[in-house]
Structure formats: C-alpha cells, structure tokens
C-alpha cells in the first residue's frame, strides 16, 4: 500500500515539475519575444495559472484526502467560494509580508503582487486542494507529528521549500553583478520556483527513505 502511494505521489509531483518546465519552454515557441527574463510578469502569470490548474486536476483525479463525507452541491459551491476567498486573502497577506520585508511600497506593486500570487500558488493553493478551507487542519499539518499521510508530508516539504527558496532568492539582489535577473522580483520568483521544484522532487525521496520511521496516526 505504502509503496504504491509513494509511487503515485512521485508521479503526481513529476507532473507538477513538468508543468513548471513547460511554462518556461512552450510560450517561447508560441510567441515571439517571450523570454522568462524579459517578459517576466507574463511568465509569472502563466506559471501561476498552469501550476494551479495542474494541482487542481491532480487533486480531482487522485483524491488524496479520501474525504468520506458525501456533500451536497450547495456545500460544494460554498466550499469553492471559500477557497477562492482564502486564496485571495493569502495573496494579500503574502504581499504585505513581502512589503514588510523591504520590497518597494508604491513602486512595482504589480511585480510584488504577481510574485505573491506565485507564492500563494505554490503554498496556499496546495493546502486548499489537500485540506480544503479548514484552517484548523492547516494548523495541524504544519506542526510536529501533524502529518497524517504521505500526501501531507509532501505538502509540508514543498511549502517550506518554496518559501525558503523565495527567501534565498532575495540574497543576490544587493550584489553589484548587474545581471538582468537581479531585478526585483525575478531572483525571488526563481528562488521560489526552484524551491518548489526541489520540494516536489525531494518529498517522495525523503518519504521513501524514511518510510520505516514515518508512522501516521490514523484519524
């Protein structure tokens, strides 16, 4: 059972990785003048949308959270709306935190906001897919011994990796190398993306290696 689960997780994560890679390659073939660096904002949008869609589809197909309850359509719709609100709120919160960390307050609002959307896609959207709009479940997952399945462990790892990546991405900004990718927010969004991809790859491997120690509490 566990082996099969891990394999499923690995496949799903690889799909996400491929979607990220494709967002950098495919638009360049379709449009002239598209480069990840040059038209970075466009890439940010495309990447957010693609990764978001792939995540939602994977979630619908794989149904990792095995929700036992059957629910009515109205309930589903309200859940969906709640998810949208949560996502939007998380974008706002990320934006605020990024500004508090030193991003320009008034200049480059678009850049900052799109970056926070990207970060929300990598973190909040996954949580929403996996756990639904249920803050208490989120709190539980992000504490020690809180993960109850390999999917939740994977969620922990990818989220932390994305945020760490974004954090490390801020490091090259003050350097005087005069590279095009040192411009706000390119290095940070690259960092976040690399962190996300790294998290996706690391998570199944880590779970595989630690599968003896990982004992999940059953609900």
């Amino acid at each position: 059972m566990k082996e099969v689960e891990i394999r499923r997780l690995f496949a799903a994560n690889l799909l996400c990785v491929f979607s990220v890679i494709l967002t950098a390659v495919v638009p360049a073939l379709l449009w002239d003048g598209f480069t990840v660096l040059g038209t970075h904002l466009v890439w940010l949008c495309i990447c957010s949308v693609c990764v978001g869609t792939v995540n939602v589809i994977l979630h619908l197909v794989l149904k990792p959270n095995r929700s036992p309850k059957r629910s009515s359509l109205a309930h589903k719709i309200s859940r969906f709306l709640k998810c949208c609100i949560y996502f939007f709120m998380s974008c706002i919160v990320f934006h605020a935190i990024i500004v508090l960390y030193g991003a320009p307050l008034l200049g480059s609002v678009t850049e900052t906001f799109l970056f926070s959307v990207l970060l929300s896609t990598f973190t909040t959207l996954q949580c929403l897919c996996m756990l639904g709009p249920n803050i208490q479940a989120w709190i539980r997952v992000f504490s020690k011994n809180g993960a109850m399945s390999i999917w939740e462990s994977s969620l922990q790892i990818t989220t932390v990796c994305s945020i760490l990546g974004a954090w490390f991405g801020a490091f090259p900004i003050p350097l005087d190398w005069d590279r095009p990718w040192q411009v706000w927010p390119i290095s940070c969004s690259f960092g976040a993306t690399f962190g996300y991809v790294a998290g996706l790859i690391i998570a199944p491997l880590w779970i595989h290696w630690n599968r003896k120690q990982l004992t999940y509490k059953s609900r």
């Binding site: 479940a137 709190i139 504490s143 020690k144 609900r219």
Partner: peptide, 22 residues
C-alpha cells in the same frame, strides 16, 4: 508553531477530529 507550543494541547476530542486550534 511547529513544536506545537502555540496550539492548545490535544485533548481526546481534537485527536478524533485531527484538528488543532490556537
């Protein structure tokens, strides 16, 4: 947060539901 020092210690009820609150 990770160490669970911000959440209410898990009672039996929380353990059943799998939820924690602050």
């Amino acid at each position: 947060h990770w160490d669970g020092r911000l959440t209410v210690p898990e009672g039996p009820k929380q353990q059943v539901l799998g939820f924690s609150s602050y």
